[in-house]
Design a protein around this nucleic acid. Sequence first.
DNA 1: ATGTCTTTGTGAACGCGTGCACAAAGATGG
DNA 2: CCATCTTTGTGCACGCGTTCACAAAGACAT
Lengths: 232, 232
Amino acid sequence: MPTVSSEELAAAAGVNSAKLRKDFSYLGSYGTRGVGYDVEYLVYQISRELGLTQDWPVVIVGIGNLGAALANYGGFASRGFRVAALIDADAAMTGKLVAGMPVRHTDELEKIIVENEVSIGVIATPAGAAQQVCDRLVAAGVTSILNFAPTVLSVPDGVDVRKVDLSIELQILAFHEQRKAGEGGAPAEAEGAVGVEGAAAKVTKPATTADSDRAGDDNKGPDGDVPAVMPA
Amino acid sequence: MPTVSSEELAAAAGVNSAKLRKDFSYLGSYGTRGVGYDVEYLVYQISRELGLTQDWPVVIVGIGNLGAALANYGGFASRGFRVAALIDADAAMTGKLVAGMPVRHTDELEKIIVENEVSIGVIATPAGAAQQVCDRLVAAGVTSILNFAPTVLSVPDGVDVRKVDLSIELQILAFHEQRKAGEGGAPAEAEGAVGVEGAAAKVTKPATTADSDRAGDDNKGPDGDVPAVMPA
DNA sequence: ATGTCTTTGTGAACGCGTGCACAAAGATGG
DNA sequence: CCATCTTTGTGCACGCGTTCACAAAGACAT
């Protein structure tokens, strides 16, 4: 199949064909009227626009379970990412092979960054070490950081940080799961698990509101639509 | 600070105060006019709505580096998730302690799900095993799946799947990094890294368009705004 | 008790993104 | 070379979410 129409692509992706065409048009006019889009050419153009045709050297700092998992992750190489080095603060780890690559010590961090012209760093350290590692990465020239540590990093302007919270997705699933179970009393209720049990009784709200606890009210929003409190 | 106003919260979160109030109103009328929101009560209500006050037993299948990292992840317990069991297909892993918990063999999967009333499963297996594990989880009663394996899972209606691609975030960083480097020739260009080098020359487009390669065109969208091809 | 002041809750307006619908473009066949 | 048919590229309109702005509610001081 050398060409595809926007209609076919849209159907496959489950989106509107007009939107797909409009999106493509931002990249330029790469389609041929009456025929469609040349598949190979389209793939190339999108890849290039997304930066997939570039070689991005990255370092992974913190080679614990997560760091090792990331080092072994196959999806990186196929997207143009090249793991330039694995770095860990534990001297006992130095030289060990992870994903076929020797772990380097933190002392060499700056040198590694500069020599490999690394601009993207991945932090998979414990929370306590994250900010310190981040500062060193930035000082050495890294301008984009992917943070897996459960901390909010502060960085100077011009540096991008993206935080990945592995439990967020689980949270979203649990939210929908709660909905499936119905509004009524869900199973395995563990009141006070977050350490605020009795909060509803302590507050100064009228007892009627606090005690009824929303059981039975229809939870309509101000505009009358369904409750929109829903992650992603 | 026993209470907060929507204005303070909005400023802290960097959002509009009216939107924040409207969002809160979907949960009910928990504020007090002239005062604000009772912090403790508000935290409790939001926690409850989000499902944080419930106890969610989960199983993690595939105890490799990633599975182990997830088992050790601190963020789960604090959000109401309880790891009911770690499951792996490798008999050599059975009984080993990971995050202070013995690894169970896949043979016991169904039993574990049923006994613990697990409704959420996490798949951290290699891609090849994911669908099979998924099918068994669903058959045993799991209705929400968090998939870390690089495969698209097919599930019956009523089952939610969320796929986590660890390289997506890296991709987004690289995209912005590319933008920072300017439109001109970026460093470390690796033409053809995705195996389509020469694609621009092979296609049947007029040579003028293909060769100019968009250098110099202003890349305006159909409505005249800035190029909106930008992940997240 | 009454007035003033603060802050909520929400109706209404605005703006942006999505989808519709069609003219222009190009391929294909006669 | 012309007619027809397919598919793109995009102006336009609709709808939804965000923001504005204000009336109602309650606290607090006098």
